[in-house]
C-alpha cells in the first residue's frame, strides 16, 4: 500500500494510501479529490487527469507514449514533468510519490 502525496493547486495537501497496480488517477479520484475529473476513466482519451510529477519520480515510470504526448498538448500549462496520471501505474516501492495538480484540467 504505497502512500502518495497529492498537492492541489490551492495548496491543500492530501496523503493517500493507494494500491499497487492502481493508476495514480484512480488513487486520486477514489480519494474524492475533485480537482481531477478523469472523465474517460483511464482510456487516455480526455486529458482531464493531468498532474505534475515531482522530478525525483519521473524516471520511475515508463516514458510518455505517443497518445499521452498528443493529449498533453491540449492541457493548460504543460510542463516537462506533466503526465496523464491514468497512464501511471503504481508499483512496489512508490511510497512517498509526490505530485501537484494543475489549476485547471482540460
Amino acid at each position: 500500500m504505497p502512500t502518495i502525496n497529492v498537492i492541489e493547486h490551492n495548496g491543500i495537501a492530501h496523503q493517500l494510501s493507494a494500491d499497487v497496480g492502481q493508476s495514480v488517477m484512480q488513487a486520486v479520484t477514489f480519494a474524492g479529490i475533485s480537482s481531477m475529473s478523469a472523465d474517460c476513466g483511464g482510456a487516455c482519451a480526455c486529458a482531464t487527469c493531468h498532474a505534475y510529477l515531482d522530478e525525483a519520480w519521473m524516471d520511475r515510470f515508463p516514458p510518455v507514449q505517443e497518445t499521452e504526448d498528443a493529449m498533453l498538448d491540449i492541457v493548460p500549462e504543460r510542463r516537462p514533468n506533466s503526465r496523464l496520471s491514468c497512464q501511471l501505474v503504481l508499483t512496489e516501492g512508490m511510497d512517498g510519490l509526490t505530485l501537484h495538480l494543475p489549476a485547471a484540467q482540460f
Binding site: 492502481q22 479520484t29 477514489f30 482510456a43
Partner: peptide, 22 residues
C-alpha cells in the same frame, strides 16, 4: 463504467475495481 466491458475488461486487462467510478 461501461466502455471497458467490450474491450479491456473482457480481455482481462483491467479488473473490476478499475471500472468503478468511485
Amino acid at each position: 463504467q461501461r466502455p471497458p466491458l467490450s474491450k479491456a475488461y473482457l480481455l482481462g486487462k483491467i479488473g473490476e475495481s478499475a471500472m468503478l467510478f468511485r
